[in-house]
Amino acid sequence: MQSNPLRIGTRGSALALAQAHETRDRLMAAHGLAEDAFEIVVIKTSGDKIQDRPLSEVGGKGLFTKEIEEALLDGRIDLAVHSSKDMPTVLPDGLALTAFLPREDVRDAFLSPKAKTLTDLPQGAVVGSSSLRRQAMIKRLRPDIDVVMYRGNLQTRLRKLAEGAVDATLLAAAGLRRLGLENEITSLLSEDEFLPAVGQGAICIESREGDQDTLNKLAAIHDQETQTRLDAERAFLAVLDGSCRTPIGGLATLDGETLHFRGIVLKPDGSETHQEEASGPASDAVTIGKTVGENLKTRMGPGFLADH
């Protein structure tokens, strides 16, 4: 065992651990290192402890990162592996997102033993989701559906669905695939109809600025295309002050050196929607995301986000 293994911080859910192991395995392959050159450090976050109410009521996205970032800042871990969609747009001083793994499927998956698609669900069906974006989009497509709060890790949500607590649920296709659970997917929702969360399907790695040794190791597994897409999406979210309290979707795609970005903001009940898109050189990713966010803000007017 080497004396100073690279310590990888992660949440303890099966999905978070799968993402941490993928990061470790890529680093092992890139640098020819053995497994004992790494240590996976599981950190329980506030978001994992609070299961009885919506996260938007108790602090939003940062609840899944706060304790992990504290461990990074005080040197207990060397890097942290996160789902990009859990990351706040503002990070603590001294920390940065320093690598992205190649992005998985960005789409939302529909899971139900009772219908093939969201459209096929019977009138008044009950759909479970803890995401305000998904809740608003479901209501926009099917105002008759009863959408209920649905917390818990991926396995808990699958169990509740099997037990009949709800008629259907929506989950990120990427998470199901990473856990080898794609056979649970009933159908996939098209990006056109159901714009994903900013960063959905992308694993990001956070580390200390100036920790050159860790940065050098991460450079070998970094996927620039994913970062370019996420730069646009996170710039868009930052303009709208996106938190768990606002239903927001955004997706950047690359076609050669051209980046196309589309963003959406919804009222929580799905009754009002604003969408905007823009294209430009990939090198202008941040500007494109910001511009779409600013245009949407102007179109919505000052009361839109304040009403809820």
Rank of each mutant, 00 (worst) to 15 (best):
residue 42 V to E: 14
residue 44 K to S: 13
residue 45 T to D: 05
residue 47 G to I: 04
residue 50 I to H: 07
residue 51 Q to W: 01
residue 57 E to P: 12
residue 58 V to A: 14
residue 61 K to S: 00
residue 62 G to K: 10
residue 65 T to I: 06
residue 65 T to N: 13
residue 66 K to A: 11
residue 66 K to N: 07
residue 67 E to F: 03
residue 68 I to A: 08
residue 69 E to C: 10
residue 69 E to D: 10
residue 71 A to Q: 14
residue 72 L to A: 05
residue 73 L to P: 12
residue 77 I to L: 05
residue 79 L to V: 12
residue 80 A to T: 09
residue 80 A to I: 09
residue 80 A to W: 00
residue 81 V to D: 08
residue 81 V to P: 14
residue 83 S to F: 02
residue 83 S to E: 12
residue 84 S to D: 14
residue 84 S to P: 08
residue 85 K to D: 15
residue 86 D to E: 15
residue 88 P to Q: 02
residue 89 T to F: 01
residue 89 T to Q: 08
residue 89 T to H: 08
residue 90 V to M: 10
residue 91 L to M: 12
residue 93 D to N: 09
residue 94 G to C: 05
residue 94 G to V: 08
residue 95 L to R: 07
residue 96 A to T: 13
residue 98 T to V: 13
residue 101 L to W: 02
residue 103 R to M: 13
residue 103 R to G: 13
residue 109 A to T: 00
residue 110 F to V: 01
residue 110 F to L: 03
residue 111 L to C: 09
residue 112 S to P: 01
residue 115 A to K: 06
residue 115 A to W: 11
residue 117 T to W: 01
residue 119 T to R: 01
residue 120 D to H: 04
residue 125 A to M: 05
residue 125 A to Q: 03
residue 126 V to Y: 00
residue 137 M to P: 06
residue 139 K to W: 07
residue 141 L to F: 11
residue 142 R to I: 02
residue 142 R to T: 02
residue 142 R to N: 03
residue 142 R to K: 07
residue 143 P to G: 01
residue 148 V to W: 02
residue 149 M to D: 10
residue 150 Y to R: 03
residue 150 Y to S: 11
residue 152 G to L: 05
residue 153 N to V: 05
residue 153 N to C: 03
residue 155 Q to F: 14
residue 155 Q to L: 14
residue 157 R to P: 13
residue 157 R to Q: 15
residue 159 R to P: 00
residue 161 L to S: 11
residue 163 E to Y: 06
residue 164 G to F: 02
residue 164 G to I: 09
residue 168 A to M: 01
residue 169 T to F: 05
residue 169 T to A: 08
residue 172 A to I: 00
residue 174 A to C: 11
residue 174 A to N: 10
residue 174 A to E: 04
residue 175 G to L: 09
residue 176 L to F: 13
